[in-house]
Nucleic acid binder design. Structure first.
Lengths: 172, 172
DNA sequence: GACACTGTACTCGGATACGGATTGTCCGAGTCTAAACGG
DNA sequence: CCGTTTAGACTCGGACAATCCGTATCCGAGTACAGTGTC
């Protein structure tokens, strides 16, 4: 029962990318600097998000990452599953049939009740995560967080997003 | 997002122990044999359940394990937390304040919104697990599972529970 | 014959190695930019 | 002066080690039972 710490980085990066203009990108190195992470390692997780069609990556000097679809259509569940894998946390090893009392497979057509209960709990977990849209996260951050933190974050994305839209509106 | 396989073993053992008489016990070796597990390793998890006051252990030739309280008052959450640890799966590393823009701590009095969302999901997970009582698991097993499996299980506990209540009622 | 003592066998409990997964890092493939050269 | 070429630098992407946690195992502490000797 432990999530890798890459999940936190992935969500933070996705939230930051939700604040850039439609086509602009932010490089992985910039985001690594923003959160004090190892650039090479952060790329690994961003890569998984790209493979899951959550982010788009563009190469080249002006390259970087951007959201593959609007933040309203990205949930925390998408990110968590992309980074941690889609298989459930509880994997029933069917140890009930490993004992000395060997019955044939017809006795185990029904799922293990323990497995059912655990999977039900995990469905609740995923449902709660599926209701948390990325747009809600950033909206809540904009209104609730400390204004200094919001200003610093917006300034950071405005400074690092490329191509630099100096004439466009500085949104967060 | 992965649970150790010891959780499955712990729940199965607890369910088996729910079927013994009030004071009778089953040895760890017997349960390891019942599920085809390594005896020495199963002891480790049973030990954690004992430390969490879910099981009681008695030493000696007629020793073993038994439930510390009625199965109605034991939930899957208790077992999972005892084996996997009580700390939440998502641990916020506060990477938001690791960046180059260093604000003082007063800017971070509010919890990270991402952390809030993840903890909310985990509360849902634990709530679902807290509603699954061990007595429900065994009751469902008695009624729904294959009769051959139920009979074999009851025979196993009747054969291995100690002190052997040969004259008492052979319940499951 | 009954009681107390001692030895034994069986149990749990904690300390000790091993393997795999996660974490962290490096170098190569691809691409856009920008300068330099020629017309 | 303008178009083309070419070199450069910056980006992502995958392949390669180090470290930590989960897995597996062994040996020691403790206890109830059984046998034996004595009263």
């Amino acid at each position: 029962m432990k999530l890798g710490e890459g999940v936190e980085a992935a969500i933070h990066c996705a939230a930051m990318l939700a604040g850039v203009d439609g086509d602009a990108t932010i490089s992985g190195a910039a985001m690594a600097e923003a959160f004090g992470l190892s650039p090479s390692y952060l790329l690994k997780h961003l890569n998984m998000l790209s493979a899951a069609r959550i982010l788009e990556s563009v190469s080249g000097p002006a390259g970087g990452y951007r959201l593959a679809r609007p933040a309203e259509r990205i949930t925390l569940l998408d990110i968590v599953l992309a980074v941690e894998g889609r298989e459930p946390a509880f994997r029933c090893g069917e140890i009930r049939r490993n004992g000395p009392v060997r019955l044939d497979a017809s006795a185990y057509v029904k799922l293990c009740g323990i497995n059912v209960a655990m999977l039900k709990a995990e469905r609740a977990y995923r449902a709660a995560l599926a209701e948390a849209k990325l747009s809600d996260i950033v909206a809540e951050y904009m209104t609730d967080a400390d204004p200094r933190s919001v200003a610093a974050g917006c300034a950071f994305v405005a400074r690092h997003q490329r191509p630099r839209k100096s004439s466009s509106t500085k949104q967060a």
